[in-house]
């Protein structure tokens, strides 16, 4: 295969605030040729995933009834495909839990079959 068909993407790894500039060279068939610029293995993983199916941790909030706060923040325990965000938000928008909730409480197990859980990140006491 001639090199002119190879693709290059310069990415900013989002796995941590260091934000390494990772350069990935790959073929149209998504065969990885070279990865550089990453300071740790997570950067390599990130680059490979990024060219095929970018994943992100989803952070948002859900309504809480009878709580000290109106909302509890939630997150997915690991990155989920970015393409599922719209669908995920449509589900989350309808959720409502009753206080108290605690940090780490699982709201949805195996969220959208991604193998990650949707968990509470803010404890909300009952009023």
């Amino acid at each position: 295969m001639s090199s002119s068909q190879n693709l290059v993407k310069e990415l900013t790894c989002v796995r941590c605030p260091l934000g390494c500039k990772v350069k990935i060279e790959y073929t149209k068939e998504l065969e990885v040729l070279n990865i550089s610029g990453n300071k740790c293995p997570r950067g390599r993983e990130y680059a490979i995933q990024e060219i095929s199916d970018p994943h992100r941790i989803l952070v948002t909030s859900i309504k809480v009834k009878k709580g000290k706060y109106l909302l509890a923040s939630v997150k997915t325990t690991d990155a989920i495909p970015l393409r599922l965000f719209d669908e995920a938000m449509k589900i989350i928008e309808k959720l409502e839990v009753e206080a108290p909730v605690k940090r780490g409480d699982i709201i949805i197990k195996n969220f959208l079959e991604t193998g990650t859980n949707l968990i509470v990140t803010r404890s909300v006491e009952r009023l």
């Binding site: 941590c16 605030p17 941790i57 952070v59 948002t60 909030s61 923040s73 997150k75 940090r103 803010r122």
Partner: peptide, 25 residues
């Protein structure tokens, strides 16, 4: 921190990727 519900906090200080409310707790 209470309103910064996104993650990316605490990697250096708590050695964990936390959201703002988690960091606070």
């Amino acid at each position: 921190l209470n309103q910064c519900i996104h993650n990316g906090f605490g990697l250096q200080y708590f050695k964990k990727d936390l959201t703002g409310p988690e960091f606070k707790e």
